[in-house]
Simulated assay, not measured.
Amino acid sequence: MTEIRHDWTKEEIADIYNMPIMELIYKAATVHREFHDPNEVQVCTLLSVKTGGCSEDCKYCPQSARYNTEVDVEKLMPTDIVLNKALEAKENGSTRFCMGSAWRNVRDNRDFDRVLDMVKGVTSMGMEVCCTLGMLSEDQAQKLKEAGLYAYNHNLDTSREYYDEIITTRSYDDRLETIENVQKANISVCSGGIIGLGESTIDRIGMLHTLSTLEIHPESVPVNALVPVKGTPMESNERVEIWDMVRMISTARILMPKAMVRLSAGRTEMPTSEQALCFMAGANSIFAGDKLLTTPNPSFASDKDMFQILNLKPRKAYKEAKHYDLSIS
């Protein structure tokens, strides 16, 4: 039986990450089968409910007001439109619906009240509801919990050491504080990062070390490959190699066996064969739908074809809720 550990050292993680690739995939696949159905993948949908105009300076992000990208600034979507999008996602097989807003942090105002109404509406559909709204106080996290929020996404993006090269408008500790506030409210945490930002292997190991040594592992760990966007400082970054994605996914799976490891941004560039390698290595969740916030993503139809080819089945909502002591009303 694989032990769930929270005391990993960076040296141990480096040894895992740098294993011969075939051995690494085999080890990760073995751990994956111990905790999960290897033919089951959770289908999630991510919708940008408030797009653009963000005051942050994240160098990869087309929604930053500091960069001249083709993303238009839009107000918060009407609640009925969001709920219709959620219903459409459910009909296409999604069991988790995530709403993203380009805010630096949540403010206690009418927009936040509307987001709470959206959470209540999507929860009533029987879907797991996730939000990514920026920094969050304890009180705001509690309000989201009371509205029915299942998960909150707040990525670390990269290692503590490399973080200031990517973002200067909030600190690494700010991110960890939001994660702590979310966990105090008994909301499951979705937190991962992005590779392809110019970081080193040591930085990738550092990010995985921070996540895997949290007192409670994230319930979901998204692994994103950078999608370079024209107008951002990282528009010329090279595409991430599939083997880098496989190493990140495999290592995350071994370190955090119960977590949903999410194959996130960058799938548009991956043929089915490459995505299959990621599923074999322990990924068991994807975002479906034409867009991931503002960047391209495979369509529901192409994902359905992939599921058929690989004999994958969608995971039901709330399947592992008991692992995380989450009350489902």
Rank of each mutant, 00 (worst) to 15 (best):
M1A: 11
T2N: 13
D7S: 11
N18Y: 05
E23S: 14
E23V: 14
I25E: 09
Y26W: 10
K27I: 09
V31L: 04
E34L: 06
C58S: 02
Q63D: 10
R66P: 00
N68V: 12
K85R: 15
A89D: 12
A89V: 07
N92I: 06
C98F: 02
S101K: 02
D108L: 09
L116Y: 06
L116W: 09
K120S: 15
M127Y: 01
L133V: 11
E138D: 14
A141N: 13
A141S: 15
Q142K: 13
E146M: 07
A147S: 10
A147P: 10
R160K: 14
E161A: 04
E165W: 00
S171P: 11
G193T: 01
I205S: 00
G206F: 00
L208S: 13
L208C: 13
H209D: 01
T210C: 08
E215R: 11
P222F: 01
L226A: 02
P233A: 05
E235D: 14
N237W: 00
I242W: 03
W243S: 09
M245D: 03
T251L: 04
R253Q: 06
R253D: 06
K258R: 09
L263E: 03
S264A: 07
E269K: 06
P271S: 12
Q275L: 02
Q275F: 01
L277A: 13
C278G: 00
F279M: 05
N311M: 00
L312R: 00
R315F: 02
R315L: 12
R315A: 12
A317V: 06
A317T: 07
E320I: 03
H323D: 12
S329W: 07
